[in-house]
Design a protein around this nucleic acid. Sequence first.
DNA 1: TTATCTTTTGTACGATAGTACAAATCACAT
DNA 2: ATGTGATTTGTACTATCGTACAAAAGATAA
Lengths: 236, 236
Amino acid sequence: MVRKPTSKETARKPNMREAILAAAEELFATNGFNAVSVRDIAQAAGANPGSVTYHFKTKDGLLLEIYRRHCGPMNLRRSELLAAAKRVRDLQDRLEAIVRAYVVPAFTSGSDLAGGGARFTRLRAVMSAEGNEVARRIIAQTFDDTSHAFIDAIHESLPHVPRTEIVWRSHFLLGALYYSLVTPERVSRLSRGEADGSDAAAAIEQLVQATVASFQAPALDQAAPARRRAAASNKT
Amino acid sequence: MVRKPTSKETARKPNMREAILAAAEELFATNGFNAVSVRDIAQAAGANPGSVTYHFKTKDGLLLEIYRRHCGPMNLRRSELLAAAKRVRDLQDRLEAIVRAYVVPAFTSGSDLAGGGARFTRLRAVMSAEGNEVARRIIAQTFDDTSHAFIDAIHESLPHVPRTEIVWRSHFLLGALYYSLVTPERVSRLSRGEADGSDAAAAIEQLVQATVASFQAPALDQAAPARRRAAASNKT
DNA sequence: TTATCTTTTGTACGATAGTACAAATCACAT
DNA sequence: ATGTGATTTGTACTATCGTACAAAAGATAA
C-alpha cells in the first residue's frame, strides 16, 4: 500500500532508508561499487544487512535508487540554468553562462540533496570508470538529452565551430569535472599547497574559465589536417 | 634464483607470465580491480589460477607489476618528448609541443608496450577512480616528478599565468585524457556517429587543440574574483 | 485492547573470493 | 639419460559475498 502521511508529523518518516542511501552513496563514490559490501553499507548506516535487502531488494537496486533520487532534480536544475543562460544576449557571456549552468549543479552541495551535488557526481565518475552496467544504462537514457541540449546551446553561440568539435570539447569538460571531484588532493599536492582542490568554488571558476577558452579555440576539423602556424589568429 | 638467458634463444621465454600480465591489464582497465577475480585473469590468459599466485604472489602484486612494467618507459618517453618540445623557439608552438609530449604517450599503441599505451592509461584512470591504494602510492611517487616537469615547462611558456592555474588546467587535461579513454563511445553517441571516440589520432588532436587554448586563457586568480554577472542566482 | 501492516533483526545458505601448497610437469645442463 | 630447479596444475581452506527468510519489534486503525 501507499503510505499516507500520518497524523503526528509529515516529515518525520523513519530515516533508516535514507541513512542507507546516504551511506551507500558515500561508500560507492569513494571506493567503487564492487569494493563495498552490503554489510559495509549497513554498518555505516547503523542498520542491519537484512534491512538493505528489504528496502532495495538487491545491491543493484540500491544503486538504481541512488540514481533515481538525483537524476531528476539535477537535470531539472540544469535545464533551468540553461534556459536562463540562453537568454543572455552577448555571445561571449552566454557561452560562459551555459558552461556554468552545466558545471555548477555538478559541484554544489551534497548536504541539500535538492539536485546534483559533488558526491553524486563523484559517484557517477566512479561508476563510469568501472563500466558499471546499471549506471551505464541509466546514464545513457537520462543524461543524453541534457547533454544534447547543452551541446546545441553551445553550438548556437559558436556557430563557426563544427558540432563534432563541440562534442569533443564538452566531453573533455565532463572528464575534467569528474577528475576534479575524484582526486582533488592531486591539485593541492601539485600546487604545493597553494591551491585547494577541494574548494568547490575555486574548482568551478577554474573549470569554467579553462573550458570557455577551449570552446573558443579555432576549429581544426575541416580546415587544417596539417596545422601550420595560422595559430596567431587568437581571437577574443 | 635469477634466471639466466639460456643457450638457444634469449627472447623465447615462456609467455605465460606475460600473458597473465596482459590479461590482467585488459580486465582491470575495463572492469576495475575488484570486479575482476584472479580466476577471471587466469582463464583469460589460458593459465591456471595457481600460476598467478606463483608469479605475482598476490593480486596486489600483480597490479604492482603492471605499473612497474609501464611507468619507467612511459616517463622516459615523456621526458624525451618534453626535452625536444622545450627546444622549440616559438612560445606558441612550444606550448603545443609540450602538451603533445604529455598526451601522445598516454594514447599511443597498446600493441608495442615500449612505453605508455592507451590500455595502461585507461587502467590508471580506473584505479584512480576506485581509489585503489596500491595505485595511489605508485602514482604519487612515480608520476609527480614528471607532472611537475611538465607544469614547469608550461609555466615557462606562459609566464603571465600563475603556476596555480597551470596546475588546475593540467589537472583538467589529465581528467579529459582519462575520460576520453574510459568512455570513447560517448563521443560517438553524442556526435550521432559523426566522430569516432576510439580514434586515437583524432582524440589527440582534439585534446591538444582544446588544451592549448585552455592554457592560454587569461588568468583569473588575482584579477577578478567577482565575475561580471552571476548567470544564476545561488540561493543555497 | 486486538488485528494488521510495516520495518527491523538475526541467521543461514550457496557461491565465489584470495591464497596456500603438494604433486605433476617441463626445460635444460651435465 | 638423469638430476635439478623452474613452472604449471589441481585442489583445498577459510573468509566473505549477495541474498533469502522466519521471527521479533514497532506502528496504526478499529
